[in-house]
Design a protein around this nucleic acid. Structure first.
Length: 271
DNA sequence: AAGTGGACCTGCTAGC
DNA sequence: TGCTAGCAGGTCCACT
């Protein structure tokens, strides 16, 4: 589910409310991607700080350390005073004086990991290879061009890898490439500097528009208040195989790259 | 070093 | 109606 816009929308929906809350209980469900790495009771009494985001990870400061959260493919966070009895997909509850933060994640690719600090293991290791934030001023066409030099993978896969720029997952990588007019199969290292400029701008624009729309809700994404996103209504190519391109009316194609679906317009996007 | 493929896990849908 | 194959928003790791 969650690419940068969904994670950021989620963060904004509870960061202020949870800051200053004291932990009064912890409940673990089925195992997530990694073990939490601390005794649940060790969190009792700790006070939360303001949640920040790096890539698709959230960092919730708690006492002397914090929890690194990831939503995986199907995760979402709720934060409310009154929570229902945990369902079969509710795998983490952080009960606090201001409400309960609950991770619901059917596929359990998500994670909640204790770390003594953001720049220490295990958090530091998980964040070590992340590229620039898309809204970082350093994420420019020149930077993109330099980082892509010599890489023979398709540009779509280079974007998804996250070591150059974070945040664009399968939906937004497809949408950004459409906006930039670049064929997703183009060899990354062969993109001209002007096209890199255009792509960097497109990544920012698409993520920004998705943020404004509250993210994309394909099936079950909701922010911590339970509000769905609407960007799926503005998607130009993602999930639209066989349908007409909204710009040129050519038929949108679906291909597979790196075992992921890629959607693109064969007329608007060139190599 | 960079690229590829498998792994993790569950639920939903389309098709027979 | 019921079973099965295929697909889904991510990313780590082992291997070439």
């Amino acid at each position: 589910m969650p690419e940068l816009p969904e994670v950021e929308v989620t963060r904004r929906s509870f960061a202020q409310r949870i800051a200053g809350a004291r932990v009064t209980g912890v409940r673990l469900g089925k195992p997530l991607r990694w073990p939490i790495g601390c005794a649940p009771d060790a969190l009792l009494g700790l006070v939360a700080g303001e949640t920040t985001r790096r890539g698709k990870y959230l960092w919730l400061p708690l006492g002397p350390g914090g929890l690194l959260l990831h939503l995986g493919m199907s995760g979402s966070l709720a934060f409310a005073q009154d929570v229902a009895a945990p369902g079969p997909h509710d795998h983490f509850d952080l009960v606090t004086t201001r409400g309960t933060l609950r991770l619901t994640d059917p596929r359990r690719f998500g994670a909640v990991v204790w770390s003594p600090a953001l720049d220490q293991a295990p958090a530091a290791r998980l964040l070590a290879n992340l590229g620039y934030e898309p809204f970082d001023a350093r994420f420019t066409g020149a930077y993109l061009h330099a980082r892509l030099r010599g890489r023979s993978v398709a540009i779509k896969q280079a974007l998804l890898a996250g070591d150059i720029v974070v945040g664009a997952g399968n939906i937004y990588a497809c949408e950004a490439l459409l906006l930039a007019g670049i064929d997703p199969r183009t060899v990354a290292g062969k993109l001209s500097k002007p096209r890199c400029e255009r792509l960097a701008a497109s990544v920012r624009q698409v993520l920004n528009e998705a943020l404004q729309a509250g993210g994309t809700t394909l099936r079950d994404f909701k922010d911590s208040h339970g509000v769905a996103g609407s960007f799926q209504l503005q998607a130009q190519v993602y999930g639209r195989a066989g349908e007409a391109c909204r710009r040129c009316a050519a038929t949108i194609k679906r291909i597979v790259q790196g075992q992921r679906s890629t959607y693109f317009c064969p007329r608007c996007q060139t190599r």
